[in-house]
Amino acid sequence: MDDNINRKWMIMAGGGLAMAAALGIWFWQSGSSSSAEATSEAARAAGIDAQEQKAIEGIVRNYILQNPEIIPEAVELLQDRQKASALDAVRDQIEKPFAGAAFAGNPDGDVTVVEFSDFNCPYCKQTERDIAKLIANDKNVKIVFRELPILSEASNDAALMALAAAKQGKYYAFHKTMFATGRPTPSTIEAAAKEVGLDMKAARAFIDSPEAKQEIQQNIAVAQQMRFTGTPSFVVGNQSEVGAVGYDGLKEMVAKARAAN
């Protein structure tokens, strides 16, 4: 390759590897005519003619074939960036506890763990113990709970009662009691509510309110935006995970978020 092509390659590649990764994703994902046109336009904008572009693409192709591991690495990096962008768009919304009460731990904690959960989910029940252990061992973490009732109608009924408990300042007590009581049914939901001392008349009135239904709908919308495919799902700093990560997993996510602050 002559010096002119080499210079243009360096401009286009940003040092080589970045361009190889980017074009690798392009070759791997589509190879569509629209992608090819976009690449040609970018080349022309950089002052690269068709012959030079062909030479550069040959170099990139050979590099990718010799180093195919850069493709999943680049895809993972792209997904992480997309995830961080999606988180930034909803962070203020999801880290603010509903009614100021749907949280546990230190209200001024330096790391906030957001959990999306369903009272009908056995993995969420398992996670309740992990959360309790986390806040017992880390006095500077805040857990914000978001209701994501996706498994059954009973899940939705329990979620609405949890929001009613939050309005009465008794969210976490209900959260723990509901999981301890058993799978949500009309009787277990009422039993948990009465055990934590909810004003049942006020709770039932709130459950029928637009505010309660809107909160559930907003949580579902955020979960869809974040591509959460189940419960529990977590957001900690710029990290998000779906599934029961366990105490050690939560502890590691908190440590990473704290180190990034």
Rank of each mutant, 00 (worst) to 15 (best):
N106Y: 05
M1V: 14
D130F: 15
N67Q: 07
N6K: 14
G197E: 06
A173G: 03
S33E: 15
A158L: 04
A191P: 04
E147G: 03
K213L: 02
P107T: 04
T127A: 09
L198G: 02
I207W: 10
F174A: 01
G16M: 14
S187F: 04
A191C: 06
A193Q: 03
P184S: 10
T185W: 02
A255F: 11
E241V: 08
A154K: 09
Q93A: 15
T231W: 10
M12E: 06
D138E: 13
R258K: 15
S117E: 09
A158Y: 07
A164Y: 05
K125T: 06
A202G: 05
Q79A: 13
E95K: 06
K125I: 10
V75L: 14
A84I: 15
Q79S: 10
Y171R: 01
I25G: 09
Q79P: 06
A36L: 08
I216Q: 10
A193H: 00
G243L: 01
A104W: 00
H175I: 03
G243I: 01
K167P: 07
G14F: 02
A50R: 08
V235Q: 00
I64K: 00
A22C: 13
A260K: 07
E215P: 03
M10P: 00
Q29W: 03
I150T: 10
Q214A: 12
C124W: 15
I48W: 00
V75Y: 04
A244I: 08
D248F: 11
G109W: 01
S40N: 10
N156L: 03
Q29P: 07
I25R: 04
I220F: 10
L134I: 11
K83V: 15
W28E: 15
A132T: 14
G105Y: 02
S30V: 03
T229L: 06
E215V: 10
E37V: 13
I94T: 06
A101C: 11
K96T: 15
Q168N: 11
A162M: 07
A86Q: 06
A50P: 06
K83S: 14
N261M: 11
I59N: 09
A164D: 01
F234G: 05
T188S: 08
V196D: 07
D92R: 10
I5V: 15
A132G: 05
F179I: 03
N137T: 08
G105T: 09
I207C: 03
C121N: 05
S30G: 13
F98D: 04
S30Q: 12
I59Y: 04
A55I: 13
F27S: 08
G249A: 02
A202R: 01
T229N: 11
A257R: 06
N261I: 05
S34N: 07
S35Y: 09
A55E: 15
A180V: 09
P122I: 13
A154Y: 09
D80P: 00
A46E: 10
